[in-house]
Computed example of a mutant assay.
Amino acid sequence: MTAADQAAYRMPTVVYSSWGLLHLVAALASLILGTAVLLLAKRGALHKRFGYGYVGSMILMLTTSFAIYRQYHGFGIFHVAALLSSVTLVLGMAPVLRKKPVRSWRQLHYSFMYLSVLELYVALVAEVLVRLPGLHFWEVASISLLAVMLPGAALFNHRRKQWHVGAPGAQYSPASSG
Rank of each mutant, 00 (worst) to 15 (best):
W19M: 05
A147E: 01
L135N: 01
Y54K: 04
A82L: 03
A36W: 14
R49A: 13
M113L: 13
V130M: 03
R103F: 05
L31T: 13
A141D: 10
L46N: 11
L84Y: 12
L124Y: 06
S85Q: 09
M58D: 07
A82E: 08
S18D: 03
T63F: 14
T88V: 14
A94T: 12
W105M: 02
A141L: 12
L40K: 12
V90H: 02
Y9M: 10
I143L: 09
Y72N: 04
L135S: 08
V37N: 07
P12E: 10
T88A: 14
L46Q: 14
M149Y: 08
Y121M: 02
S144G: 08
S17I: 13
Q71C: 00
A29E: 06
L97P: 00
L39T: 15
Q71N: 10
L60I: 15
S17A: 09
G34I: 12
V15H: 12
Y16H: 14
Y72E: 07
L155V: 15
S104T: 15
M113I: 14
H23G: 02
M93T: 12
M149G: 04
M113T: 15
L115T: 11
V148F: 06
G56V: 07
P95F: 10
R131K: 04
F66K: 07
H73Y: 07
M58G: 03
T88E: 09
L39N: 04
V130R: 12
S142K: 10
Y52V: 13
M149N: 13
G92A: 09
R43Y: 08
G92Q: 05
I59C: 05
S104K: 11
P12R: 03
P12F: 15
L97S: 02
L124F: 12
I143Y: 07
G74P: 00
T35V: 05
V96Y: 12
Y121S: 01
I32S: 06
L22H: 06
A141S: 09
L24D: 02
L91N: 08
L24Y: 13
L60R: 00
P12I: 15
T63R: 07
G51Y: 09
P151M: 01
A41G: 06
Y9N: 11
L40H: 11
A147L: 11
S104F: 13
L46G: 10
A8Q: 05
A81P: 09
G92K: 03
K99M: 01
A141R: 05
V117K: 06
Y121R: 05
R106H: 08
V128L: 06
W105V: 03
G92E: 03
G44F: 04
L91F: 12
L91T: 13
L84W: 12
K48C: 00
S111F: 14
F137T: 15
V96A: 06
S104C: 06
S17P: 09
V90D: 02
V128G: 00
R70P: 01
L135Q: 02
Y69P: 00
L155A: 15
V125E: 04
A29K: 03
L38Q: 06
K48A: 09
L150M: 11
L38S: 05
A36H: 07
L40N: 05
R70K: 05
A126V: 08
V90R: 01
F75G: 05
V125R: 05
I68S: 06
L108G: 01
A29H: 08
W138V: 11
I68N: 08
T64L: 01
A45I: 12
K42R: 03
W138R: 09
